[in-house]
Write a protein that binds this DNA or RNA. Structure first.
Lengths: 276, 276
DNA sequence: CGTACTGTTGATCAAAGTCAATTGAGGTGG
DNA sequence: CCACCTCAATTGACTTTGATCAACAGTACG
C-alpha cells in the first residue's frame, strides 16, 4: 500500500511557495514553471495558469516510498516540487536499475499519458513534494495555453535525450567515468533548477550503484577513488561535489544533451504550434 | 557531405506504395500510419492526410550513410518508410553507442523539434527510404488533425519507454541475455510493423556490439552461443531468428514496454486532446 | 543494549575487453 | 577469368574490470 499524505493545497502552497502573493518574478516561481520558461516563450499568463495547477494538489511523500507503483495506472501527471526521486525498473529476479533521477521541476510521469500500466516505479529518495495534475486539468491548460504544450514537448524530448546519454554512459564509460558523469549531470541540473549545485546530494551508495549499473560494493570503491582524487567529498555522511571541473574532465562531460538554455527559443516557436 | 538522392514524390510513392489508388485499407497504408492507428482513434481522414504528407518528400539513402548528421539542425522530421537505420552517439575518443534502431514506421527524429544541434547521428543500415516532413507541414497537419498529434505523443513516449528498457537491458543483463533481448525486441517490432518477423536481420556484428554495449569480438562469441543453442541461425550471411520463444525465455522478455496495442485507445482520448 | 541498516574492506572469480592473427566473401582491375 | 584487395567475421591467448562472497565497522533507532 502506498502511504501518501495529501495536504490541503492552500496550506502547502503557502509553505513552499512564499512568492504566492501574485508577483510574476520568475526567480521565485515553481521549478517547473521556471524551467519551461526557458524552453518556449511562456507568457506571464501561461506561467500563472501552470503555477496555479501546480498548487492545487500537492502531496508529501516520505523518504524511500514508491509513489508511482510498478504496474499501476495513473490518473494524474506527477511533477516534482521539492526533493529528489528516482525512477527504476525491476527485473523478475530482483535486479534493479535506476533509469532516471527526478529533481524539482521535473515531470515524473509523462508516461501516465499512455494510460497503460507503469513499467517503471518512482520512489522518493528523501522526503518529497509532488504536484499532481489530472489529465483533464492538463487538457484544459494546454488547450488554453498552447505555449505550455510546446514547452512540455520540449521537456519530454529533453528527458529522452538524457535517457540516451545515460545509455551511452553506462555502455561506453568505465565505472569511474560513469559515476563522474552522473555527478556532472546532477550538478548541472541542480544549478539549472536554481538550486545550489554545491548542496550535498541525498543519494545512498546503493542508488549510485543502481543508477550507474554496478554493484553497491563497486560503487563504494569507485566513490572512494573519486574521493581520494579530491573530486568529491563527504560532509557528515552527505556527498558533495568538490571539483565540478575535475569531474567533467574525467567524464568527458558535455552538457549539450541536457538541452538547457533558451538559445533557439524563437526557432521552436512554430514547432510548438505544430505539435499542439 | 551527405549524399541524398531526392526523388519526385509521385514516382516514389507509386513505387513503394502500390495502394495509392485511394482505398483506405489500413493493411497497405504506410507503416507510420498503420502504427499510429493503433495508438489513437485516427480516422480515415487523419490517416489520409498523414499519408499524403509522407508521400510528398521521400528520399533514398544508401546503406551506411549517415542521413542525420551529428551536430546538424534539421528543418524536417524524418520518418522511416523502408529499411533499417540506427541512431548513435559518439564519444570524443571514438567510442560509439547505438541508442536505437529505427524500423519502417518509426519517427527518427522527434528531437528535430528542439531545433538544437543533433546530439545523435542517424545512419542507414541497409538502403533506406525516409520521408521528410517539414515542421511547418507538421504544424498544419497536427492543427487540423488533433488525433494525429495525440498519436505522435504516444509514439514519442513509447520510444522513450524503449530507451529505458535498453538502459536496464545493458546494465542488468549479461551479454547473452542482452543480445537475446535485443532480438526479441526487433522481432516483436517487425511483427507489429506488419513485416515478417522471420525475415533475416540486416545487422552487422559491429552493429549488434554497438547496440548491446560490448566489443565486436564479444558480440561474435555471444552470437555463436546463441547459434549453437539453436536460437538464431545464419542464412547466407544473414541473421535469422530461429526460436523467438527460446530467446524470450532466455532474455526474460516482456513486450509491455513497447506499448503496442490499442488496449486503452479510448482512455487516451482526452489526453491527446490535452497535449494538443 | 540489541537490531538493522549502510558503508567499508578483502579475497577470489567470472565476464568481457584487448591484442593479434587468420579466414572467408565480395568486389575490382588487369 | 583470375589475382588481388578490402573488410567483416572468427578464433585464440591473455589481461582487466567489475561481480561475488564474506566479514566487519559505524550509525541510527527503538
Amino acid at each position: 500500500m502506498r502511504v501518501l499524505t495529501r495536504i490541503s493545497a492552500m496550506l502547502i502552497s503557502s509553505l513552499i511557495n512564499p512568492h504566492d502573493a501574485g508577483d510574476d518574478q520568475p526567480i521565485c516561481a515553481p521549478p517547473l514553471v521556471r524551467k519551461l520558461s526557458r524552453h518556449a516563450r511562456v507568457t506571464a499568463a501561461d506561467a500563472a495558469a501552470l503555477g496555479k495547477l501546480l498548487d492545487l494538489n500537492v502531496r508529501l511523500v516520505r523518504a524511500r516510498t514508491t509513489f508511482i507503483e510498478l504496474g499501476s495506472t495513473q490518473a494524474e501527471i506527477s511533477v516534482m516540487v521539492q526533493g529528489w526521486a528516482c525512477r527504476y525498473k525491476l527485473l523478475p529476479d530482483g535486479r534493479r536499475q535506476i533509469v532516471a533521477f527526478h529533481l524539482p521541476g521535473d515531470v515524473c510521469d509523462f508516461n501516465a499519458l499512455l494510460t497503460e500500466a507503469a513499467d517503471t516505479g518512482t520512489e522518493a529518495i528523501g522526503d518529497v513534494r509532488v504536484a499532481g495534475i489530472t489529465k483533464q486539468a492538463l487538457a484544459r491548460l494546454t488547450a488554453e495555453h498552447p505555449r505550455i504544450s510546446q514547452a512540455l514537448w520540449w521537456e519530454s524530448l529533453a528527458s529522452a535525450s538524457v535517457q540516451r546519454e545515460w545509455l551511452t554512459n553506462v555502455c561506453r564509460r568505465n565505472a569511474l567515468e560513469r559515476m563522474a558523469h552522473l555527478f556532472c549531470e546532477l550538478y548541472a541540473r541542480l544549478e539549472a533548477a536554481g538550486q545550489d549545485g554545491q548542496a550535498p546530494l541525498p543519494l545512498a551508495q546503493v542508488d549510485l550503484a543502481n543508477a550507474c549499473g554496478m554493484t553497491s560494493e563497486h560503487a563504494n570503491r569507485t566513490l572512494r577513488s573519486l574521493r581520494v582524487a579530491g573530486l568529491v567529498s563527504l560532509q557528515d555522511r552527505k556527498l558533495a561535489i568538490a571539483s565540478p571541473d575535475g569531474l567533467a574532465a574525467l567524464a568527458g562531460f558535455d552538457p549539450a544533451y541536457l538541452h538547457f538554455g533558451r538559445s533557439n527559443a524563437t526557432a521552436t516557436e512554430h514547432v510548438g504550434a505544430a505539435m499542439v
